[in-house]
Design a protein around this nucleic acid. Structure first.
Ligand code: FES
Ligand code: FES
Lengths: 141, 141
DNA sequence: AGAATAAAAGACCTTTTAGTCTTATATTTG
DNA sequence: CAAATATAAGACTAAAAGGTCTTTTATTCT
């Protein structure tokens, strides 16, 4: 559904979000230890999210990643869009160049409705919402 | 959502299904011309589906692919499972090794419900259902 | 039987995704 | 300022997905 990078990104953001609630910055090592994600790859994803303004970072000692925005203002949709783009929310289920309701593929009606559910779910869930389901054991394997 | 191969497979099956209703076999060339899919790649997918019993084929002149089963007995779920496996229907949205409701990831409740919708949609739509939405222009670019 | 036809099989190539590693740059602290 | 620390950037490698091509095998038709 989502790419590996996107899944890692979401998991990492929950770790950073939780720390940010306590006004703590988190280094990439700690993020990846807790989120169980590969370090260099996750770092790259974080840097992309910083560039896109979802995340903030500070270099140097006592630096790390943090979130300055309201955790309720960052939706799952925003995160997925930033990492994977909007494809999963708009593409035709049978791979036609454009999903076009006026020229629907045989699956369009049924598929578009599921896709719409996914989109609504991602739009209505914020990073803050995810934090309530985040316990220390969650990403342990 | 689905792999390229899976999208091609579904499209190809609609072409074959329609022909099978008229007791016609279809060669790979015609299938791909109508479904707008790459020929060799689609052939490989079709052969996989034949092995899995979803599809039948006959070699030699006047041969081709056809479906001997009831078109209402082949669900979209069957097709997706045969090509992509069950991952999309069961995997954790945040990429954890197992989606486990007793140890849910922060997205579990919301994600599992969308995933369930997708699964239900695929289980309840048969190849025959898809045929009603298949017109000659559908897969034209 | 022989020629033609069409799928089957699998080796092969290309592109994208996933992931690592090294070097540079910014920031803090002594 | 110097040393230590942490992110930034980008080159690089590995694996998976996507796709092609050639050879073989089965079937039909003359
Ligand atoms: S045209 Fe295929 S999902 Fe809309
Ligand atoms: S545990 Fe993540 S979706 Fe179920």
């Amino acid at each position: 559904m989502f790419s590996n990078g996107c899944e890692y990104g979401i998991r990492a953001l929950t770790i950073i979000g939780r720390a940010s609630k306590e006004d703590r910055k988190v280094g990439i090592k700690e993020i990846c230890r807790l989120a169980k994600t590969p370090e260099s790859f996750t770092a790259k994803i974080m840097q992309n999210l910083v560039r896109r303004g979802i995340l903030d970072s500070q270099k140097g000692p006592a630096g790390g990643f943090y979130i300055s925005k309201d955790l309720d203002s960052i939706t799952l949709y925003d995160i997925v869009e930033a990492i994977d783009g909007t494809g999963v929310f708009v593409s035709c289920g049978l791979g036609l160049a454009h999903c076009d309701a006026s020229r629907p593929c045989p699956l369009h009606d049924k598929f578009a409705s599921v896709r719409q559910e996914l989109k609504a779910m991602c739009k209505s869930n914020t990073l803050n919402d995810l934090l309530s389901g985040l316990h220390d054991q969650v990403y342990k394997r």
